[in-house]
Design a binder for these strands. Structure first.
Lengths: 153, 153
DNA sequence: CGATTTAGTTTATTTTAGTGAAATAAATCA
DNA sequence: TGATTTATTTCACTAAAATAAACTAAATCG
């Protein structure tokens, strides 16, 4: 970020490259699976939380129910998500991620590679890395919070 | 990534959280500046490479010339980019990022926070961190390359 | 110089994803 | 049970951003 981050402090410099690489990876995954950024956010939610109802997805993504129906349609058509009526409350729709081939391949490939990177270091080093990553995550969340808080959209 | 990345190996686990945090941060920046993901990609390119012509932007982003004209219009209107005719070849348009207030504030805030994180560690630890981050970036780029290569879009 | 090529813009059109509100159907309340 | 509430879908419409192709202007080739 030449003109943007100022001098090339190492921490910031490192962070910038990493951040760009992450974003580009996500864009590539989206392009590969033919899925939008918003749809990927929903898939990530399902990965993390497990099956959710359409309403929970609406709540979590900030979209209207109508938009969620459309999103589930798309993802179902793409074979990335399964839609079944909740037997306990048949108004509800239970949306769960399928272990779709292409998608899981992508993430397993990444997980394996990340695992390989971490395993190069000894115990103590791994602790440093884990600590660092944890703090970076905190920083990012804090900055994200600031951004969304100030704007009050 | 429950069903997707398999068991909770630490490296992958860490990576997932980090990746989500990065993506959310970028989304927040976009929302704050009122700029789309695609437009942010272009801004990042300008940050990294410095001023580019409209054609170079088209090449780099994979968009058509017409789309680039529209994008430059938007970014210029938002005060994030400057458009000037190249004096050497007056058909060409030289697009350069402005050091826009809001945007540079955001990234300087992040840079400072990242810098603070890194400075917590001693020399040796910082070397480990730098090494790790460098390798992760490589992994991400490699995986991204694979994804875009296979698909041949 | 005139013809051709190159860079970017314009315009008409398409695509995508969203909204808001009405409609449908199931559950719950009195 | 009938009335009401809740969950999702459908439908008509909007907005943003992309495309393809025609157009304009500048550079270069012969």
């Amino acid at each position: 970020m030449r003109g943007v981050t100022g001098e090339g402090h190492r921490g910031a410099e490192l962070g910038r490259e990493l951040s760009t690489a992450v974003v580009m990876f996500h864009e590539a995954v989206g392009a590969r699976l033919g899925v939008s950024a918003g749809d990927q956010r929903a898939l990530a939610l399902l990965d993390r939380r497990g099956p959710m109802s359409a309403g929970e997805l609406a709540e979590a993504t900030g979209l209207t129910p109508g938009a969620i129906t459309g999103m589930i349609d798309r993802l179902e058509r793409a074979g990335l998500v399964r839609r079944e009526t909740d037997p306990a409350d048949r108004r509800r729709v239970r949306v769960s991620g399928t272990g779709d081939g292409a998608r899981s391949e992508v993430f397993q490939g990444l997980a394996a590679a990340m695992e390989a990177v971490v395993s190069r270091y000894d115990e103590a080093e791994q602790r440093v890395i884990a600590d660092y990553v944890g703090r970076v995550v905190e920083v990012l969340r804090e900055q994200t919070r600031k951004l969304t808080a100030t704007h009050t959209r």
